[in-house]
Design a protein around this nucleic acid. Structure first.
Lengths: 153, 153
DNA sequence: CTTGATATGTTATATTGTAACGACTATCAA
DNA sequence: TTGATAGTCGTTACAATATAACATATCAAG
């Protein structure tokens, strides 16, 4: 799990973009300038960002659809995730792997950690099967306090 | 679990409102006319409704804050839940019990079932403890197809 | 009845997200 | 090369969701 500990940012950014690049080449997807730039922005900040916040960083008088299109592309192809609870987006911490993550969201500092999720395997999966519901995608978002914010309080 | 099967609606509404009434009395909360009406609306429809949809049903030229305030009250006190993924609200299926539910959301017909959640107990809970994150609340929303919509497809 | 807390009505505005359309670009096949 | 096609982008306008702020009204306790 990639969590709240500090770490080497520049490495994150480099591997994140490289992974997206590689995966796009092999899948025939186009990692265009705007898309790459938005991914970099998410990786640099390394936290959940709203679409309009990304838009500001893009500058150049970019309009909402520009940000939303790039973000949609990144989310659809697994390079970023949408955090429903925050109406925000965050770079994926495990680019390339096929996964349905869970998130730990700190309500103090808005940091977001990505954890492996097995929502469809546990009792929720059982309950779903029992009533004949077919789960396609699961959103798991836990809100609480990260270690730093617990200390601060 | 309360799911996709058909059932006696009027019973739902009666018990839902009664439970809220009882719980408010014992907790010193005020289930005012608007709040009661909004709860009834959610119970009648028995599906996730947007705040503006509730507002329309309220009629009488009600303005957004009226709906949001009532919904906030109901959510805060456990009589309704917010479905992040849909920006919508649904009456609680287990009024009175203290619980952190998971939801099964059908993308075909927008029906929502409430299932017991144990997000903080399973591996997510372990992962959180491991990094020192204290979970306060968990949102679990699974998107997929309910039995009826699977048949239709 | 007064007081303090809570709830409501109202206006205005903030935030988040899309529809629609025309122009441009990459790719591929004839 | 040319044209066909699908995907992408810039732009305008707007839709949908949510909240701030402030005046008024209501309730419950002393």
């Amino acid at each position: 799990m990639i969590g709240f500990e500090t770490h080497d940012h520049s490495h994150c950014i480099a591997t994140g973009v490289a992974a997206a690049d590689a995966r796009c080449r092999e899948a025939g997807l186009r990692l265009t300038e705007t898309r790459r730039r938005v991914l970099e922005i998410l990786l640099e900040r390394h936290r959940a960002m709203g679409a309009y916040e990304v838009l500001e960083v893009l500058g150049k008088g970019a309009k909402p659809p520009t940000a939303y299109r790039a973000l949609d592309f990144l989310v659809k192809n697994g390079f970023a995730h949408r955090i429903e609870r925050l109406n925000a987006f965050i770079a994926c911490a495990h680019p390339g792997e096929d996964h349905a993550p869970a998130f730990l969201i700190c309500r103090g500092c808005d940091a977001v950690a990505e954890a492996p999720s097995e929502a469809t395997k546990g009792r929720l999966g059982e309950a779903a099967r029992k009533v004949g519901f077919r789960i396609e995608r699961a959103v798991v978002e836990a809100v609480g306090l990260c270690p730093k914010c617990q200390d601060a309080a």
